[in-house]
Amino acid sequence: MKKTLKRIVLLAIFLVIALMLTNYMVSYQAKDNLYSSVNEIPKNKVGLLLGTAKILSNGNVNLYYTYRINATVALFKANKIDFVLVSGDNGSKSYDEPTTFKEDLMARGIPEDRIVLDYAGFRTLDSVIRAKEIFGQESLTIISQQFHNERAIYLAKHNDINAIAFNAKDVQGRYGLKVQLREYLARTKAAIDVMFNVEPKFLGEKIEIK
């Protein structure tokens, strides 16, 4: 019994160390590609806006969504991006992240013809790889919160995409902490995906952004 308990404890310690090392690796590889200032970030033709739900399960507006909208509008109005590629989940008729983002971006002054939708951005890996393979972007600006941007940059680097990222305002409090903790597991999954060259769920015909 004592030997079994000792093995469980050792395994748990090993898993925690592995999670911490993976988290550090992802952050380190992205550190030189992150920007928080609209004035300092270089210009790219396309900004890749990573999707999320607008409304939380409790009925409140998702601040991650709101802050990503604000960040995208700021970049566009500062002429730091010419087009917005909105990549999100449209897994059912009742759930359509890209269209929701498009409507709110247009309400904030971004013209419809400058917004391109990717309905198959089911997860970050899909969004990043499809930006290159489907939409032809080998250089782009990723838009999300910093923790998410770091993982997206990590995936971009391992798929030969020259990406920088603009950090939208982060979310504080209990909900923000829960999301940050889940990020540890997401980064481990991203490292495994890179190791095994996992591809997006869907690819398809190329779509030119012009």
Results as ranks from 00 to 15, higher is better:
V38H: 10
V38L: 04
V38W: 08
V38Q: 09
N39F: 03
N39C: 10
E40V: 09
E40D: 15
I41W: 13
I41T: 13
P42K: 03
P42Q: 04
K43M: 09
K43Y: 10
N44Y: 05
N44G: 05
K45Y: 01
V46S: 00
L49G: 00
L49D: 08
A53F: 07
K54Y: 03
K54M: 07
I55R: 07
L56D: 05
L56R: 15
L56S: 06
L56G: 11
S57M: 12
N58P: 01
N60V: 09
N60F: 10
N60A: 11
N60C: 07
V61I: 13
V61F: 11
L63E: 07
Y64K: 05
Y64Q: 05
Y64W: 09
Y64C: 05
T66N: 12
T66Y: 12
Y67L: 09
I69V: 10
I69P: 06
I69A: 03
N70I: 15
N70G: 02
A71N: 06
A71W: 08
T72K: 00
V73A: 05
L75R: 00
L75Q: 02
L75D: 11
F76S: 04
F76P: 03
K77A: 13
K77M: 10
A78S: 10
A78M: 03
N79K: 14
I81W: 06
I81R: 03
I81T: 12
D82W: 15
V84E: 04
L85H: 00
V86A: 02
V86S: 00
D89N: 11
D89I: 09
N90T: 12
N90Q: 10
N90S: 13
G91E: 09
K93C: 08
K93A: 15
Y95M: 04
Y95E: 11
P98C: 06
P98L: 08
P98T: 02
P98M: 06
P98V: 05
T99H: 12
T99K: 13
T99M: 06
